[in-house]
Amino acid sequence: MSTNWALKIESLGKIHGIPDLRSLEDTGPEKGTAKSALTGSIVAAWDVSFEVAPGEALGVIGESGSGKSTVMRCIAGDQGSTTGAVRLRTVHDGHMNVLDLDPSSRRHLRVADLSVVYQDPAEGLRLNVTAGGNIAEALTAAGWRHFGRIRDRAAELLDRTEVPLSRMDDLVGTFSGGMRQRVQLAKALANEPPVILLDEPTTGLDASIAAGVLDLIRNLLEETGVAAVVVSHDFAVIEMLTTRCVVMNHGRIVESGLTDRLLEDPHHPYSQKLVGAARA
């Protein structure tokens, strides 16, 4: 069972500045900082490992600056990594470290192997393009060339993400935040990727809107069987969407486990502080 992963991260590391390994000595949770006084470098993430199975959602939780978004961006390819491996089942059956791919092939993974939903919809969407057009971009990138079928598929995806079809041909820039996030989800799912990364997908939305988007994400994750990584600072989001999670602090994973276990029986001092704050 343990070999049945869709995404596998091995000892991923990202050091901003000189990649001097002495930076590891005076950084991390015990040192209470990610910035090395020795070298001046920032250890944004180090020795991060986890795997996600098809149909499983893994949470990455931590405060801002904990390195969770760095990890996501390194996996997505938005940011370079210093060391480690990222493996996708769909790329040479996982034997290839996609960090070794040339930038072009790496970017190409974003067409159908790996999708990202960003906190800011402007990062994942083109606001000066219609909702349908945004989805058409994903589809045409994957080789769709039939206008009618593109229309149908875009409509189907928007319907699935609860975007009124009457707004399909409106510019995304005219949409509300919650609606933009739904379009971003529709675009991310357009080519049925086996892996999806969600970075604070509901942060910044009004509470009632966020709840609706969260419901939608949970339904989509269950229905599509996609392997998901959910990055969030919010335990409510992690609890709702994931079965397992890792806790990050100053660039390192301090604890990992079943999500309900982490919430009810956190071991690491930092996890206890985090849970305590969330429960307060």
Partner: peptide, 22 residues
């Protein structure tokens, strides 16, 4: 492993608590 536990939870163990999970 956590993953195996999650799997057994789904298939082999039922757990009914006092409250409905979110």
């Amino acid at each position: 492993s956590d993953q195996e536990m999650a799997f057994y939870r789904g298939r082999d163990i039922g757990y009914v608590s006092q409250f409905l999970r979110a």
